[in-house]
Design a protein around this nucleic acid. Structure first.
Lengths: 155, 155
DNA sequence: TTACAAATTTAGAATTATTCTAATTTAGAT
DNA sequence: ATCTAAATTAGAATAATTCTAAATTTGTAA
């Protein structure tokens, strides 16, 4: 992200204040925000900012390989400015996502029948689990109740 | 799926004609359909069928662990009636999904820092690649052009 | 059988996520 | 300072999914 700001003059990437704000928000951010999370954050300083700007910027970054889309959440996409190859784990109670830095590439070999059909270009492991906070909370609140809750109890 | 039909009397699961049609469509289906795919299929025989019915049924099946949701596609959910643990590969050109029956569980150990934070309940590997058909087509059609295409050239 | 309660169906509205549009503004090059 | 390509905006459009409330149907049990 930082290095992108440094090299923002790269062909066809204009650095607007809104973009700078998005880049700054993403830089070093390990919260795996959704487009909406980003929109709401930028809106604090740029109340007129449009959703289109957020999606535009994310698309520009994505096209340049500067941000990764994560499909671990069944509801919506999350974005990760850390583009080093890694995997993720999501808490199925509160949807908190954490990075899993572990190289499984040696083990993730495709079976032969697939190799004949597909030429693999990458992989990503989704882990599912319960985070510490939710594990504690679930002693007092049923899972069903917890899931319906709009406001997350943890995180 | 079949065994579900046999045991459909299980507490609180009513077998309506629409449901039976959905169950029959899903049974042994390896195409990983979306809710919309299912809706369109059932509509052929039940023109009045509602989207809500499809989602209702899928939710009922999901709650009973009879169907798996797949998050490999960035656009929408796919459903898999094969509930044996397995993984998937998606063609990034035409979105065709194939099953990957390979047990990676031995290798997919979480790093210690994550183990302290999360209690893992499962994992799923998403593989990305290009299928044979698209590999051949891409000789003639640029990737960009191909992506914009509404009608898939392959599949 | 018939009656009934609970579950399911339906059309359609509502929500949510994402993308597109067209007019206006702005960044960065000259 | 000027200019053009790119980015911004509000708002509409699209797409995926969920919800609602009224009508219907299933499976059970008298």
């Amino acid at each position: 992200m930082r290095e992108l700001i440094a090299k923002y003059r790269e062909k066809g990437f204009k650095l607007t204040p809104q973009r700078l704000a998005i880049l700054n928000f993403l830089d070093g951010n390990t919260s795996h925000p959704t487009a909406d999370d980003i929109y709401r954050e930028i809106k604090k300083n740029y109340p007129a900012v449009s959703f289109a700007t957020v999606y535009n910027t994310l698309q520009a970054l994505r096209d340049r390989g500067k941000v990764a889309e994560i499909t671990i959440d069944f509801q919506k996409k999350h974005y990760d400015p850390d583009i080093r190859p890694h995997h993720h784990i999501i808490c199925t109670e509160c949807n908190k996502i954490a990075d899993v830095f572990q190289d499984y590439s040696e083990a993730l070999r495709l079976p032969y029948n697939i190799k004949g059909e597909f030429q693999s270009t990458g992989n990503h492991v989704n882990f599912y689990g319960i985070c510490k906070k939710c594990r504690n909370l679930s002693r007092y609140v049923s899972k069903r109740e917890n899931k319906k809750r709009r406001t997350k109890l943890c995180a």
